[in-house]
Design a protein around this nucleic acid. Sequence first.
DNA 1: GTGAAAGCGCTAACAG
DNA 2: CTGTTAGCGCTTTCAC
Lengths: 330, 330
Amino acid sequence: MSTIYDVARLAGVSKTTVSKILSGNKNVRPSTLEKVNAAMQALDYVPNGFAQGMRRNATHTIAVLLPEQYNYGYMEILAGVESCANRSGYMTFVCSTGKDGRYEEKYLREMVRRRVDGILYFTYRRNTKSLNYLERISRDIAVVVMDNVLKGERLDCVRVDGQALTKQAVCCLADKGCRRIAYIRGLHGYDATAERFRGYLDGLDARGLAFDVRLVEAAEFTMEGGAQAACRLMRQKPDALIAATDMLALGALDWFGKNGVNVPRDVRVIGFDDIPLCLWSRPRLSTISQNQRMLGETAVKRLLARMSSPEEEPFTLLLGGGLVLRETTG
Amino acid sequence: MSTIYDVARLAGVSKTTVSKILSGNKNVRPSTLEKVNAAMQALDYVPNGFAQGMRRNATHTIAVLLPEQYNYGYMEILAGVESCANRSGYMTFVCSTGKDGRYEEKYLREMVRRRVDGILYFTYRRNTKSLNYLERISRDIAVVVMDNVLKGERLDCVRVDGQALTKQAVCCLADKGCRRIAYIRGLHGYDATAERFRGYLDGLDARGLAFDVRLVEAAEFTMEGGAQAACRLMRQKPDALIAATDMLALGALDWFGKNGVNVPRDVRVIGFDDIPLCLWSRPRLSTISQNQRMLGETAVKRLLARMSSPEEEPFTLLLGGGLVLRETTG
DNA sequence: GTGAAAGCGCTAACAG
DNA sequence: CTGTTAGCGCTTTCAC
């Protein structure tokens, strides 16, 4: 592959001149410009991003750390991240931390090795070690934490107000006459989950409903998890069910369908996220919408802003959302 | 961020020694190793991938060029690519060429600039200019074309035998008594589509059914495209419908549902791809399965193999598939 | 076993 | 306007 030197030689100028043209410097005689352009063309020259990055100290690359595997639940966020990043001239690495986050540290280190300009940390699971590490490197690499509640760490955060929104959902169901509202939460150790759960408690409180531990189940963030939790919960005869994510709710819905539970007549159901799949379930899933695409875009924008002003105080961007009432709420 | 030099100084050795330790060279006295490791630890040292890449001439990075936007249709392939690449120590850039491939050249160039080790070119649309470019750079960067029929280009290719599989689908419908089998193909200029379409013709031929142009519609690869095509086709009163992709079939199915067409009684439907969403449609979509996850994994494996033996003759890997009969075929 | 020196491809002063 | 020079952080001979 040809180098800047080859171009210079062929054009009969110095590397410097070529370099200047590469970076759009206008202080070049038109005839020189032409010669150099011709040489680049002839050699099919593409500058070496390494060498550039090394000098410029910027890679125009960001990395996203995702929890678990790719699945329908994260696709919209990813699409938002991707398109926003690309529009700003950044390319994106996507990494799954793998089940129970086993690759998390390995990837974090790999991102640093590659000197990405920014890291989007998007794994609900609270991993103190990772967060400490991120805080440490955040002097050199911009970091934005998505949808994870930070206790004290000095990092930017973009997230949805899960507490307020879940509270709304509970109130909505109570106002429709539900009295035994069950809740499927994520496993412990996930902050966003804990927060949403607090919203559930708030809602019960606001409507004067008693809290009953037996109406709450924790589950893995998968459809199977949702189905199992639904199965256990039905012994308590709830008249409504809220799940911490749509995937959980969809799993529950699936289980209901297979076991003769009529939604919404017997149980009303509300999910969280508003993934496109909600439109495909029968009945269509009511949910708490958090515009995932926008979440992704906002996170990237925050990241870019952080890069250009590293000294600014870190803060949390709280995104709104809303109830989307479809068929599972009657 | 600290450099190899900082480590060397702190450990009281030379850069060379540190470098040797980084690359696992054993010719180091244990006590030196210990000192250096301690220094690395203390400085939180992570080598600079640029500088390494520049010397080693390898980035351990691959790039995937996707058609259009992220959508449910590509997610499984991406998941396969991602996980296989990561398992082999590679990170992956994902780029959407955008509507009508407007960013294709820009991204291709950007990948070269970043000196990725391999490119997965996965956009059905036949773009001669891009293919020529890919062929040219394939001396330096491994290239694998996915699911695109190559006419003469000297590039590796991994794809599914769309022709044989579509023929099977036609035969299957004919054997169920269908006589007016309609087909929704992709827009012209997409090779995989043309190939699948040939399979449609083969099938008609095999079962002695006459070809009727009015039973064929071309559409964009979206649900809306599928719905519109279905709408136009219904005037011809078909008794079966095959679509070139699941997304098209799902769009048609949706239109049928809204317009009182009973599937499978009035029209039987078969898609292509077997994306997970098929399980969510009502009725559940019968389809031609191509194990997308494996497709992605296979492509990455081919890419890695190509990297280690650049001189080998390029060839095409033809993956099998099968009919998955669910509810839309009765 | 260890280090000095050269160089990967590029950019950025600084002269001319 | 253009070229000379000196690195960026790392690896790699080749001596010691």
